[in-house]
C-alpha cells in the first residue's frame, strides 16, 4: 500500500516555466494530462456517488431473493444484482460514498498527525526530533498490512474506527516528508529573522514553516487518499471491514470472492472502482508534485 506513495515519489518531475508561483503551478498542473484525467474521474465519481443513488430507482438495502445473481445488464439492473438480489450499481455508488469518505477522512487525520509530528520533529530537532523520528521508524518497521490487522483486532468496525486505524498506519510517510522539509527550511534566513524578532516557536512553526511546506504536504495528502482507499479494501478483504448491510468497495469484493466462478461481475465491478479511484488519486498526486515542486518555487 505504501508502494503507491513510494512510486509516486519517484515519478519524474516535469519542470515548466511560468510567471507567478501560483499560476505557474496551475499551469503545470493543467498540462499534466494524467492529473487532469484523474481530477475529472474523481469529480465524476464524487458527483455520481452523491446524486446517483437518488436518481436510480433501487433501494441499496432492499433484499429480493427472487432476483439474486441477475447478470448484467439485466432487468433494468445495468450492473446486475448481487447475492441478495440488490441492484449492484446503486450499491457500488453507496459503497463509493463510504470508501471515498474513509479515504478523505483518513487523509485528513493522518495528514494532521503526520504534519504535527513532522513539524515538531523538524523544528526542534535534537532529542525531541530524534525520539519522534525513531517512533516513526519503528512504526514503519511493521509492514503496513500487519499493523492494520493488529489494530483492526481492537475495534468494532464502523466508518469512524476503520478511518482511525487506517490513519494510524498512514501518518508516518507524511511525517517523514514534512520533517525533511522543515529541517531544510529551519536554518534559512527568514526563519532565523523571525526568531530574532522574538517570534515564539509555535508562531514560527505554524505561520512561517508550515505554509512553506504546504506543497509536499498537499502531494503526500493526495497520495494518502489513494493509499487509504486501498487500505480499506485490504482490511475488508481480510475480514475486518465495515459491517453488512452497509457496502464499501472492499467488503463488496470480500463477499464476491466466493462467487468468482458463478457471478464474476460481483468481483469485477468493485475491483474496477477501487482501481479507478486509486489510480486517479495517484495521477492527481503526481500532477500536484510537478505543479507544486517546492524546490522550484523556493529556490
Amino acid at each position: 500500500m505504501s508502494s503507491a506513495t513510494v512510486a509516486a515519489a519517484v515519478l519524474p518531475n516535469r519542470r515548466l516555466a511560468g510567471t507567478s508561483p501560483r499560476s505557474r503551478a496551475w499551469g503545470r498542473f493543467k498540462r499534466h494530462r494524467l492529473a487532469m484525467f484523474g481530477s475529472g474521474v474523481i469529480l465524476v465519481l464524487v458527483f455520481a456517488v452523491i446524486f446517483g443513488p437518488m436518481i436510480l430507482p433501487f433501494d441499496p438495502l432492499h433484499i429480493d431473493l427472487r432476483h439474486r445473481f441477475a447478470p448484467p445488464p439485466g432487468n433494468g439492473h445495468l450492473f446486475g444484482t448481487d447475492q441478495l438480489g440488490r441492484d449492484l450499481l446503486v450499491r457500488l455508488l453507496m459503497a463509493g460514498r463510504i470508501s471515498l469518505t474513509i479515504g478523505f477522512m483518513a487523509m485528513v487525520v493522518s495528514t494532521l498527525i503526520g504534519t504535527s509530528v513532522g513539524v515538531t520533529a523538524g523544528y526542534y530537532g535534537g532529542l525531541v526530533g530524534t525520539v519522534l523520528m525513531r517512533i516513526v521508524d519503528a512504526v514503519l518497521c511493521f509492514p503496513s498490512v500487519f499493523l492494520l490487522l493488529a489494530l483492526a483486532a481492537f475495534i468494532k468496525p464502523s466508518i469512524l474506527t476503520i478511518t482511525l486505524i487506517i490513519a494510524a498506519t498512514g501518518w508516518m510517510e507524511v511525517a517523514r516528508v514534512v520533517q525533511a522539509q522543515i529541517k531544510a527550511l529551519r536554518h534559512r534566513d527568514f526563519i532565523l529573522a523571525a526568531e530574532m524578532l522574538g517570534a515564539s516557536g509555535r508562531y514560527v512553526m505554524t505561520r512561517e514553516l508550515l505554509p512553506n511546506a504546504a506543497g509536499p504536504i498537499i502531494v503526500a495528502a493526495t497520495l494518502t487518499v489513494a493509499r487509504a482507499i486501498l487500505a480499506e479494501a485490504y482490511v475488508s478483504f481480510l475480514g475486518y471491514g465495515i459491517q453488512a448491510p452497509t457496502a464499501s468497495w472492499g467488503n463488496m469484493l470480500n463477499n464476491a470472492q466466493q462467487y468468482l466462478n458463478s457471478a464474476p461481475w460481483l468481483a469485477i465491478f468493485p475491483g474496477l472502482m477501487i482501481t479507478l479511484a486509486v489510480t486517479s488519486f495517484n495521477f492527481i498526486g503526481d500532477g500536484l508534485r510537478d505543479a507544486l515542486d517546492a524546490r522550484m518555487d523556493l529556490t
Binding site: L11, L34, L253, I274, N282
Partner: peptide, 22 residues
C-alpha cells in the same frame, strides 16, 4: 509504461490475484 505503472500500483493485489485465479 507510465500509465501502466500507475494503474498497477493502484490495483488491489488480492483482487488481481482473484482475477488471475479466475
Amino acid at each position: 509504461a507510465t500509465v501502466g505503472a500507475m494503474v498497477a500500483l493502484s490495483i488491489p493485489t488480492f483482487w488481481f490475484g482473484l482475477i488471475v485465479i479466475y
